[in-house]
Each structure stands twice: as C-alpha cells, then as structure tokens.
Amino acid sequence: MNLSIPVIVMAAVIGLVGIGFYCLLVTRNMIRVVVALQIIVKGAMLALLLAGRMRGQLALGQSMALTVIVADTIVAVLGLALAVQVKRRLGSLDLNDLSSLKR
C-alpha cells in the first residue's frame, strides 16, 4: 500500500484512540486517567483535521479542532483539580480507594 500522508494520519488517529482507551481501561491512577483522556482527544482532533483536509475544508476542520482543544483543556484542568482534592481528602490517587458509594 502506498504510504501517503492521509494513510499515516489515519493510522495515527486509530493508534491514539486505541492507546487512550486501553490506558483508560487498565489504569487506576487519577492523573494517568486524565492523561489517557487527553490522548483520546488528541486522536479525535487529528481526525477532525484529516476529515477537513480530505473534504477540502481544512479551515473548518482547524477551527473545530481549536474549539475541541479549549473544551478539552477545561476538562483536563477540572480533572486535575479534582485529583488534588481527592489526594487531600483521601491521601491517595488510586481510584479503587474512591468507592465509598458502591454497593
């Protein structure tokens, strides 16, 4: 198969999303969970750019990717802020320790 730029980017998208979801499933550390979410979002952003390029509307794809960056940064900040509070209250970042409500 001819390795053109779209194919490479598509492989990167699939790779990033796959790695991100795998991390989300196996990790129990809150900081790593936030990092995993970031990896998935980076994959989605790349996909937006690729779709924009392929449809000849790169500007639209770029503006959407910028919006995703903003929204996603807010979510990351919130996640880390919650992690700080969890560490303060429970003394641990392990999600398994956060299970007082489960029954």
Partner: peptide, 22 residues
Amino acid sequence: PGSLEAGVKYLVQSAAGSVLVV
C-alpha cells in the same frame, strides 16, 4: 469524599462519551 467520588466518575465517563461524539 462522596461528592468527590461522584464528580470523578461523572467527569471521566462524560469526557470519554464526548470524545466518542466528536
């Protein structure tokens, strides 16, 4: 602690969901 736990669960699940929507 209960409210933090609810917040963490909600954040992770809704962030993963919204990426799927993207």
